[in-house]
Computed example of a mutant assay.
Amino acid sequence: MPLRVVGISVLILLLLMTKLRPNGFAALLLVAVGVGVVRGIPLERIPDVCRRSGPRCPPTGSGRSDRGSAAASTR
């Protein structure tokens, strides 16, 4: 059943992108919400699920930037 849902959702996404031509992110979000509902996530919980599964990258500015430092140290 899950593989069938994924296959149908990909076909719906392709149909949306080729025929209706909405914004790509909006189409993907719409299909993802539909898959969540089909898989049993209640509509009122979908915003919580989206917030929990957001990007897990560190905040900007917290990492080192070594770009160009190797070239500068060899001169």
Rank of each mutant, 00 (worst) to 15 (best):
R56L: 14
M17E: 15
R51T: 07
T74I: 14
L29M: 10
L14T: 10
A71Q: 04
V6K: 01
G36C: 09
P59M: 05
T60C: 08
S53L: 12
S69G: 05
S65Y: 02
G40N: 04
R56C: 06
L14M: 13
L30N: 02
S62G: 01
P22T: 00
L11C: 07
R39V: 14
I8T: 07
V5R: 14
A72K: 15
M1Y: 14
F25G: 11
G7W: 00
L15M: 15
I8D: 09
G40C: 04
E44D: 12
G68E: 03
S62D: 03
L16P: 03
M1N: 11
F25M: 15
G34T: 06
G63E: 08
T60K: 12
S62C: 03
M1P: 12
C50K: 00
K19S: 08
A26D: 08
I12A: 11
M17S: 15
V49A: 15
S53D: 01
L11P: 00
R52D: 14
V35S: 06
G61C: 04
S53Y: 10
G61A: 05
A70G: 07
D48C: 01
D48Q: 11
A26C: 04
R67S: 06
A71E: 08
A71R: 04
I8N: 09
G61S: 05
R51S: 09
V6W: 00
A26K: 08
L28G: 15
V33T: 15
V33D: 12
V31Q: 07
R39I: 14
G36Y: 01
L11V: 06
V35G: 01
L16Q: 11
F25A: 15
L11W: 01
V35I: 06
